[in-house]
Design a binder for these strands. Sequence first.
DNA 1: TGTATTTGTTGCGATATCGCACAAAGGAGT
DNA 2: ACTCCTTTGTGCGATATCGCAACAAATACA
Lengths: 253, 253
Amino acid sequence: METKQSDMMGGLAKGLRVIEAFTVETPRLSISEASAIAGLDRATTRRCLLTLAEHGYCAYDGKYFTVTPRVLRLGTGCLATMPLPRIVQPWLDALSEEIGQSTSVAILDEAEIVYVARAAQRKVMSIALMPGSRLPAYCTSMGRVLLAALPAETARNRLLAAPLPQRTPRTITEIDRLMSALERVRTEGYAVVDEEVELGLRSIAVPIVNARGATVAALNTGFPASSETMEKAQERFLDPLLHVRQELFRILN
Amino acid sequence: METKQSDMMGGLAKGLRVIEAFTVETPRLSISEASAIAGLDRATTRRCLLTLAEHGYCAYDGKYFTVTPRVLRLGTGCLATMPLPRIVQPWLDALSEEIGQSTSVAILDEAEIVYVARAAQRKVMSIALMPGSRLPAYCTSMGRVLLAALPAETARNRLLAAPLPQRTPRTITEIDRLMSALERVRTEGYAVVDEEVELGLRSIAVPIVNARGATVAALNTGFPASSETMEKAQERFLDPLLHVRQELFRILN
DNA sequence: TGTATTTGTTGCGATATCGCACAAAGGAGT
DNA sequence: ACTCCTTTGTGCGATATCGCAACAAATACA
């Protein structure tokens, strides 16, 4: 079934690459810029952009293209599709209330985690997180939990294919140390990350497992780093997290 | 520049229609179902779906297709692109805290509003709202504010092109009454909706205006219907909303 | 069980796409 | 003004797409 050349539509694949060229760093693109980012011929890129504009996915001022809210229809089909956010939200709210910290649920997309639900408390992080937000998996507690659920070789390949910037002095960036961390997550059943994403931010994550035993998402809490040792923090937060994990396990199919 | 047939890519437009066939009501689609929804030939739909699957936007179990988190990359490019959510979030949080109710910011896409930021308090609505969520414009306070900012004829055309279901006994569905409501929003500068979306839910919205005087978004608060008259509720909530509107006006460019 | 209907797949020809090459149009610097 | 350089726009031929139609396989129904 794979790679049946005759059943592939080049134009569609190219158009999607062009849409993905629009990021937070490059929200406005000329034809040349878009073609450079997407790695396509300028003529082709131009035709993609004009098609997107014609159908309302892009706005065109004669020089620059920008994506419109219409493209959200493409993506939110997925988020809206998922029953998970709706199911977990009440537990997230209750857990957040109980432990007095922000809690979130995320899934994995390649080497990134995607937030699908969140109960925010105080603001610890400099960046605002919301459903749909993405963070790299290698340096986040939920990312470690989700990568640990994959076969080791798959996880390694994904990490090797992604950039692993040293976001803070404590960020682990060596592939072997990351793989060891994943191994530890597998045996302990949870992941702890101490100021590897951002200075001042700690987090603990546990897997959300469905009835078939597959890890479908991760649940975490993020809290400010303090003089308290990570072990002490773990004592406070791990049990409530595991309890919600257990409740969700009972419910998910 | 418009409708240059030679510069249009049919395959891309078709593929996007197929992606949009996946909604919350139809999250899993067979080839035939997708082709019926998208209005395309089965063969073409199949080639679109196989292409999407090949590139990771869909999962295929041999019978049904589902969209994967990867499609979120298409949409969140837009949300991430927008500076608005980041800018308004702190005000939203503060406002929500001050008045003790949920607050949101939304933009307009055709005849639907799209939530771009939200500070949730208690749960009034049966449906969970999050950034990217959509509601029809005709029966929501933010929708009325955003439609009112358009030329009357444009607003009328959008309303005529969209379904206007009677969601509750109080929902206004007649085009002329809706247009009068918009006119009133224009003169008063805010919109009030009383249990037209859902029984038990009231809301008040004000426009968010940029330096050029254009309405770029709407800000609202939703609160439970009670024995309190709508006028009393307005007294409590309108001033804080208008105050935030003013603050945002100072900041936006 | 047999028959009718729907669904998935494939061959094929008319038609559209796409990338090259080149022309035209701006912009920066002199 | 000029050149130089970048960017946008456009014929055109090789190649790929797409919708029809036909067929196979699965499912529904009697």
